[in-house]
Each structure stands twice: as structure tokens, then as C-alpha cells.
């Protein structure tokens, strides 16, 4: 499966998203409304990560079980972070 064109498009999108993230800060949005900027930037990162995983690591074309395996790791880390932070609210 050669998807050179697809890979290139994804590369361009990733590049652009990274630039947007930096621009959000550059235009002072982080100072203005921190939490809006925060979630915007995090969502962009998540989208980028999913694209790399789905296409560059071709999880899209692997059996679902591999995605579950990796997703399990993500879930474990999220559970730890979220519950720990919440416990001291």
C-alpha cells in the first residue's frame, strides 16, 4: 500500500496545525482567554496525534485489536492523570 500522496497531504496538515498552535500564542490568545486557548491547542494536538497514529503508524489498516492495545495505554495514563488531579480539587 503506497499512499505517498496521502502521506504528503497529512504532512502538510500536521505542519499547518503546529503553526496554528504557535500562532495562537503569538496573537496573544493565551493571555487573553487562557482556557479557550488551552483547549484549542490541546484539541489540535490530539488531532495531530491521531493522524500520525492512524496513517503514519497505519493503525487504520491494522486489525482493530492493535488500536485497542495502544488505546489501552492512553486510557491508563488518562485515568491516572485525571483522577489524581481531581482528588486534590
Amino acid at each position: 500500500m503506497t499512499h505517498t500522496k496521502l502521506y504528503t497531504i497529512i504532512y502538510v496538515v500536521l505542519f499547518a496545525f503546529a503553526t496554528i498552535q504557535a500562532a495562537v500564542e503569538g496573537f496573544g490568545l493565551v493571555d487573553e482567554s487562557y482556557w479557550f486557548a488551552f483547549w484549542l491547542i490541546i484539541v489540535l494536538s490530539v488531532v495531530k496525534a491521531v493522524m500520525v497514529a492512524a496513517y503514519y503508524q497505519h493503525l487504520r489498516w491494522e486489525p482493530r485489536s492493535v488500536s485497542y492495545l495502544a488505546g489501552g495505554g492512553v486510557l491508563v495514563a488518562l485515568a491516572l492523570t485525571a483522577a489524581a488531579a481531581y482528588s486534590i480539587v
Partner: peptide, 14 residues
């Protein structure tokens, strides 16, 4: 690479 995609905003922007 993916890890960096999170480290970058967390340690450089936010």
C-alpha cells in the same frame, strides 16, 4: 513524534 506533539504545547505554549 506523537509524544512531542504534546510536549510542545504543554511546555512551550501553555
Amino acid at each position: 513524534d506523537i509524544v512531542w506533539l504534546f510536549l510542545f504545547p504543554l511546555f512551550y505554549i501553555l
